[in-house]
Design a protein around this nucleic acid. Structure first.
Lengths: 152, 152
DNA sequence: CGCACTCTCGACCTAAAAAGTCGAGAAAGT
DNA sequence: ACTTTCTCGACTTTTTAGGTCGAGAGTGCG
């Protein structure tokens, strides 16, 4: 139950692009250094984001990357899905396709509920929210709970 | 963002033990066949559950496994943690220990919120709930949403 | 006691995924 | 032309997932 380095990198790079705004494109190297991500790895990630239509790029001296849409219209879920594929839950199968035998029948509903709850966070938060440091209230409320910060 | 086969197996085996109740112990082979899990892999999983104090076992002809606690006092989170360790979120680090640079600062709160939301499902559902097929209302409500069943 | 049965547990194995590196090439701008 | 920066396939390396094997040790029965 973990988020890959790649997905984490992708979101951080996207946030950095969101912060840069509509001006001139941001170079890969600057993204890499400002978020401390290996440059060549990041280039592959940005390429995937580009292929998914989230990012645009131009080469050459005045080149770089920028967001294809306004930062307020790109969610964290969009970015994570672009690099990790669907937020699949169990054994790399989407939970709704799994049939459990007998006593474990209801387990599917549990995984469905987990996925729904993950989505409800990732699909609500936009890159603009992150840059502004103001998360949607439902998400902020979750993060404000002291219990949420306890390791377990 | 996925649950490993191991964790899935562990929960299913635990549910099966819960269903067997307080009578005589259940043999590994019966757990394996009723939930269609490779026996020798399952044995290792059961051993981990035993080491974590969730399960007890006895060898010999009348041997087998049983739950160390009543099924109503064992949550899915307990079982998942026993075999996967903490529900760590990012890059195998707990999110509360991560420091993000500048613009990505609020990202930590997002991962914290995600983890909190995962926990809120897994810590609420007990093995007894699963056997009875009656999930706690908050979880049942999530699973009842048609949107929750859509692939994405 | 002896024996069958079942759990215990470390060693091993293979395949895939994660994480990252390299290098040649192709557009952009000056 | 020339430099810069993105493009992208190929490759490497490390770790994890998912499993198998086989020797041993505890349990209960006849």
């Amino acid at each position: 139950m973990r988020v890959s380095a790649k997905a984490d990198y992708a979101v951080r790079a996207a946030v950095e692009l969101a912060a840069a705004g509509e001006g001139e494109p941001v170079k890969g190297e600057r993204l890499a250094s400002s978020q401390d991500i290996p440059l060549q790895f990041l280039e592959h990630i940005l390429l995937e984001l580009k292929h998914q239509g989230l990012v645009r790029a131009r080469r050459g001296a005045k080149g770089g990357y920028w967001l294809a849409r306004p930062a307020g219209e790109v969610t964290v879920a969009d970015v994570v899905r672009a690099v990790e594929g669907p937020i699949a839950n169990v054994q790399s199968m989407p939970p709704e396709t799994i049939e459990y035998a007998g006593n474990a029948e209801s387990l599917r509903d549990v995984w469905i509920a987990v996925r729904a709850n993950i989505r409800s966070v990732l699909e609500e938060v936009t890159l603009a929210d992150l840059v502004a440091g103001e998360l949607p209230s439902s998400v902020a409320a979750l993060a404000a709970e002291p219990d949420a910060w306890a390791a377990r």
